[in-house]
Amino acid sequence: MENYMKLEVPAKSINESFVRAVVAAFSVQLDLSVEDLADIKTAVSEAVTNSIVHGYANMKGIVKVVCKVVDGCIEIEISDFGVGIEDVSMAMQPLFTSKPECERSGMGFTVMQTFMDDLVVKSKPGEGTVITMKKCIGG
């Protein structure tokens, strides 16, 4: 069986650093470069922050993380059960933000896309958002 791990935390901003550190620690088994691990940390931080800031709009909720090692790649799935995203392609546009007043840069999805080898965003308004991303050795 391939290796995996599951993690669940309340949507509190203090958990952003915890989740990215755990995912990076789990990814170490893949023998990725230091730069790759830093990229994973950043992308995970973006996804978890999105769930907290947008998915739950700083209200109570749960963020779930599942990581799998598949064929020399790490697959990371980050889910929330918050408000969801009405228009995913608009949300993914660089510099687009629904919260400019909160000094959000609108670069979260761009960072995830640039730093990871693959990114899939699935969302339903009222149900939540699932972000799946992948990083491969030498990818």
Binding site: T42, S45, E46, T49, E103, R104, S105, G106, G108
Partner: peptide, 13 residues
């Protein structure tokens, strides 16, 4: 030691 896009937001502000 680490910065994500939230850091970009505060620097721009």
């Amino acid at each position: 030691t680490f910065m994500d896009s939230s850091g970009i937001g505060v620097v721009v502000g």
